[in-house]
């Protein structure tokens, strides 16, 4: 199943094309990475998906239906530029935002109680927002995004400004939500986070879709046949001369094989030479490397 389907979405501003005919699909129940450097058009895309702004052309489907004004209540969106009403009490604030998403007062209260208990912050209910620290406010912000049990959760740089402990807390909640069937779009320019969390990604650069797919597939596509061998002792020079070694350390070498060359043959060669092998594995490029390569090309 596809939760969200974009077809040739275009959005132009006065002087530049913010989104240039972008198409991609977000599989249901996946954690989907929307990647791109700053100013690539990620936020514009998200605003289009959340119906905050309208695309100039192109079509968007939410679970098969053309995106309409009823869908935002099924979407939870945590913008990068986020904030809360400083003088409101936490409980009132969460109820307010939940009710704007269409929950009744009792439903809202039930759900908020569940989340406050989960984060062990039930005593925050009658605190004012500006009495909370930045990190505490982020937790409230996260709760406000998920309180109406959205089918699609869109998080724009969710970890910015969070300390490692809270980052892990939110990360594990994101995973739990995914296990329950929530589809999640995770927008960021921090690649290490993507690698950790996302199964699918789309890479946007200058408003265009430059790369899309499963993280493992992409890594397969962009691998460069580099293998790493860790060993004990030495490797005979006769073996070394035949290989294109791209990196060499006392007990570790990286070798790039040519197209069609079998890694098993290479491994056999070492075994035959009596090299004591500790490990042998293929090196996949990090998303960061692929990202930089794509953006720079």
């Amino acid at each position: 199943m596809i939760v969200l389907n974009l077809e040739e979405v275009v959005k132009a501003y006065e002087k530049h094309l913010a989104v240039d005919s972008v198409s991609f699909e977000v599989p249901e129940g996946s954690i989907f990475g929307l990647l791109g450097p700053n100013g690539a058009g990620k936020t514009t895309l998200i605003r289009i998906i959340t119906t905050i702004i309208r695309a100039d052309s192109g079509r968007i489907f939410f679970k098969g239906d053309l995106l309409n004004h009823k869908h935002p209540s099924r979407i939870g969106y945590m913008p990068e530029e986020r904030g809360l009403y400083k003088k409101m009490k936490v409980g009132d604030h969460l109820i307010y935002l939940a009710r704007l998403k269409g929950l009744s007062k009792s439903q809202a209260k039930e759900s908020i109680d569940y989340w406050l208990e989960k984060f062990e912050i039930t005593d925050w209910w009658s605190k004012k927002v500006n009495e909370l620290s930045k990190g505490m406010q982020q937790k409230i912000q996260f709760i406000s995004t998920v309180v109406h049990e959205p089918e699609l959760l869109i998080l724009d740089e969710p970890f910015s400004g969070l300390d490692p402990i809270n980052t892990n807390l939110i990360k594990s909640e994101i995973r739990k939500l995914q296990e329950k069937g929530t589809s999640i779009i995770f927008s960021t320019h921090r690649m290490e986070q993507v690698e950790e969390i996302c199964e699918h990604i789309v890479l946007i650069n200058k408003g265009q879709n430059v790369l899309e797919g499963r993280v493992s597939d992409i890594k397969n596509t962009y691998k460069q046949n580099i293998f790493q061998l860790e060993f004990d002792g030495r490797i005979p020079e006769s073996v070394e001369t035949d290989l294109s070694i791209i990196e060499k350390a006392p007990n570790r070498i990286r070798i790039q094989l040519e197209e069609g060359q079998d890694s098993n043959v290479l491994l056999n060669q070492f075994l035959n030479e009596g090299v004591k092998i500790l490990s042998f594995n293929e090196i996949f490029p990090s998303l960061n490397e692929i990202f930089i390569r794509q953006v720079e090309s």
Binding site: T50, I52, H69, P72, S73, I75, Y77, M78, P79, E81, R82, G83, L84, Y85, K86, L97, L100, K101, Q141, S144
Partner: peptide, 15 residues
């Protein structure tokens, strides 16, 4: 609302 950055949260729920 604009400087608080609450506004984008709001308009993801209401027009």
């Amino acid at each position: 609302e604009k400087t608080n950055r609450i506004v984008e949260v709001m308009i993801s729920s209401v027009k």
